[in-house]
Design a protein around this nucleic acid. Structure first.
Lengths: 211, 211
DNA sequence: TACAGACCCAAACGTATGTTTGAAACGTAT
DNA sequence: ATACGTTTCAAACATACGTTTGGGTCTGTA
């Protein structure tokens, strides 16, 4: 990373800082000085701060959604049954495993997603939905086959609820860890939490629909 | 509201703008000009922008947590059984009903909470935990009695997951509504979503704990 | 009427931000 | 070796922000 090109050094640093402090709270000067590049490099290579943010997401999500698509292909090819556990398990293993060399990367992934989704005007959310909505929809179709008794509209919202539970929890893990440690004197890792998440989400997604 | 005092005019306006655009993205100038008060009024009455943010939350959460405490008292007095539906139902009805005269207020409540929780450095989260952690803990104890088979540590995280699902979904409702309308051609209200949330959360909270 | 304290206001202050500039350094192919 | 497109750099620019200031206005009291 120290010997990487300017563009990658900026992306690497911006990714970490955005996840740590948010978009508005991270200045270009903070990024460039930490990355060891000139301030003007961001505008030269990306055009604007806004474009840098999008570039960070693109570098993150394009491999992820490609891998997810491949896993779904594989699932269909091998005839793996569409159960909630199988479908959600794919997503989790992927999110945790896309960068096995860097375990912190998974946390960054979730924190970044949280920042994007909770951005007020939500235009980043729209961007994500536009560029990665196709894989997302495919995932939802598999889930629908897993729980055919849940109406599509209901399932749509349950997937949103699940997204909220995942991103919200994992993007706020550092604070929650402190609380958890104070209450239970136990450290928790990202992998721990996802292990706890799976049964929760499965239980919620396949819950009975009232009346 | 037009004739209210300066302090309340600032709080009313800040509340809406913070929920709409976030804390960092909302300038004091935007607040004061929309509120029709002088720019210096914020620093005069509150001391700083940071203090204003806290004041907004205090005005929101103090009545809410008081009402929640009262409802829990009532529950214990009447001997209402501790079921997940009962406990969660209290919270939802309260969040939706604390300001019946202004239905939009519920959405603001959730959006504000989302902003607070997703704030990067999380010191607002710490503030909330410090000032309202007691009621929160009481709520969790009732839930624990509702699902005694779930270990406390597991329940702690499931409550966090639930919080995430609720806040995340409702704080991003405007974007999600657009997506939902595009996919299903149906409008959805905050009350609709909470109605869908309840079975999801109950299903997740009382799910079997593996191994 | 005179005083005092609370409140309001226009203006300025200092600082931090994203962006732009124009020249210097670099690498490469002619 | 020279010329050229690309990249880097220090510096400056314009703007927006939170905060402070000092004088003014209002209100209630003695």
């Amino acid at each position: 990373m120290a010997q990487a090109g300017t563009v990658d050094r900026i992306l690497d640093t911006a990714e970490v800082l955005f996840a740590q402090k948010g978009f508005a709270e991270t200045s270009l000067r903070a990024i460039t000085s930490k990355a060891g590049v000139n301030l003007a490099a961001v505008n030269y290579h990306f055009g604007s701060k806004e474009a840098l943010i999008q570039a960070v997401f693109e570098r993150f999500l394009t491999p992820f959604s490609a891998a997810l698509g491949a896993k779904l292909d594989e699932m269909e090819a091998t005839g793996t049954p569409d159960t909630p556990e199988n479908v959600l398990g794919i997503v989790f293993r992927l999110a945790l495993g896309t960068h096995p060399e860097d375990p912190q990367r998974a946390a960054i992934f979730f924190r970044l997603s949280g920042q994007a989704y909770s951005q007020p005007q939500g235009h980043l959310r729209d961007y994500l939905h536009k560029h990665y909505g196709a894989v997302f929809k495919r995932l939802q179709e598999h889930l629908q086959r897993a729980v055919p008794s849940v109406p599509p509209m209901e399932l749509f919202w349950r997937v949103q609820f699940s997204l909220g539970a995942v991103i919200f929890t994992l993007s706020g893990m550092q604070s929650l860890q402190a609380i958890s440690k104070a209450d239970f004197d136990l450290d928790v890792s990202t992998a721990d939490i996802t292990r706890r998440l799976l049964p929760f989400l499965v239980g919620g997604i396949q819950a009975d629909v009232p009346e």
